[in-house]
Amino acid sequence: IRVTEDENDEPIEIPSEDDGTVLLSTVTAQFPGACGLRYRNPVSQCMRGVRLVEGILHAPDAGWGNLVYVVN
């Protein structure tokens, strides 16, 4: 998935696990201090948080898609 520190920055590609999840530790390896991800909902244009359970980030209902995710 494509992740950036700010919406206007160049994104970095972060690998997902075989089950489609992303480990928070993978994100923090590239973005120290990150505690989660958010993205701009293409329909509402509002920022939406990615579900985080026990250090594992779960894809939105429509999958990770071609969105750019921003670190929290």
Rank of each mutant, 00 (worst) to 15 (best):
V71T: 11
R40F: 13
L24T: 02
M47Q: 09
C35F: 09
N41K: 06
Q30V: 14
V3A: 02
E17D: 03
S25Q: 10
N72V: 09
I12G: 01
T4N: 03
A29Q: 10
P15H: 11
E54T: 07
D6H: 10
E7D: 04
V27L: 13
R51E: 13
T21M: 04
W64A: 02
A62R: 12
D9G: 11
M47E: 10
I56H: 09
V22H: 00
L67G: 09
R2W: 11
G63C: 04
Q30T: 09
G49F: 15
L37S: 01
P32V: 05
G20W: 01
A59H: 05
G49W: 12
G36C: 02
H58N: 06
P42L: 06
I56K: 14
L57W: 01
Q30H: 15
W64R: 03
E17T: 07
E13T: 12
T26E: 11
E10F: 13
V70E: 07
W64M: 02
V3K: 05
G49I: 15
G63E: 05
F31V: 02
R2L: 08
I1C: 02
E13I: 10
S25L: 05
A34Q: 01
Y39P: 01
I12M: 08
F31Q: 01
Q45Y: 14
N41F: 04
N41T: 14
A29W: 06
L52F: 08
G36R: 02
L52T: 07
G20T: 05
E54R: 12
F31K: 01
T21H: 08
N66R: 11
T21A: 04
N8E: 10
E13W: 15
P11Q: 04
V71D: 04
I1A: 10
A59V: 06
T28S: 13
E13K: 08
G63M: 00
A34T: 06
L57T: 00
E17Q: 14
R48P: 02
N66G: 08
V27P: 03
P15D: 10
G36H: 03
L23W: 05
I14F: 03
D18V: 12
D9F: 11
P11M: 03
D18S: 11
P32Q: 05
P15N: 14
G49E: 14
W64F: 02
V22N: 00
V71P: 05
R38L: 14
I56F: 07
D6Q: 09
W64P: 00
V3L: 04
I12W: 03
P15C: 11
L52C: 13
A62W: 09
V71A: 08
I14V: 10
R40K: 10
P15V: 09
T26N: 12
G65A: 07
W64Y: 02
G63H: 01
N72I: 14
H58S: 08
L52G: 04
I1M: 01
G65E: 07
Y39F: 10
T28Y: 07
D61Y: 07
W64T: 03
T26M: 12
Q45S: 11
N66H: 06
M47C: 08
S44N: 15
R2T: 06
D18W: 09
R51W: 05
P32S: 07
E54C: 07
A34D: 01
I14T: 01
V71K: 00
S16L: 14
Q45A: 12
I14P: 03
D61W: 07
V27I: 08
D61C: 10
E5F: 14
R38I: 08
G20Y: 06
E17V: 06
I14N: 11
R40G: 04
G49Q: 15
G33K: 12
L23H: 04
L37R: 00
V22L: 13
A59Q: 08
V50R: 00
L23C: 09
C46T: 13
N66S: 12
N41V: 12
R48Y: 13
F31W: 06
A62H: 15
V70I: 14
I56W: 05
I12H: 08
L37K: 00
S25M: 06
C46V: 13
T4I: 09
G36M: 03
N41P: 07
E5V: 08
P42K: 10
R51P: 12
V22T: 00
V50E: 02
E5T: 09
D9T: 13
V27D: 02
I12Q: 09
L57M: 06
L37H: 01
G65S: 08
P60I: 02
G33L: 10
V43S: 05
A29P: 02
T4K: 11
G33I: 04
A29V: 10
D18P: 13
R40I: 15
S16T: 12
I1N: 07
R40M: 14
V70H: 09
E17S: 08
V3S: 03
T28E: 12
V27R: 00
F31L: 03
V71W: 03
V68N: 06
V53E: 15
G65T: 03
I12C: 09
P32W: 04
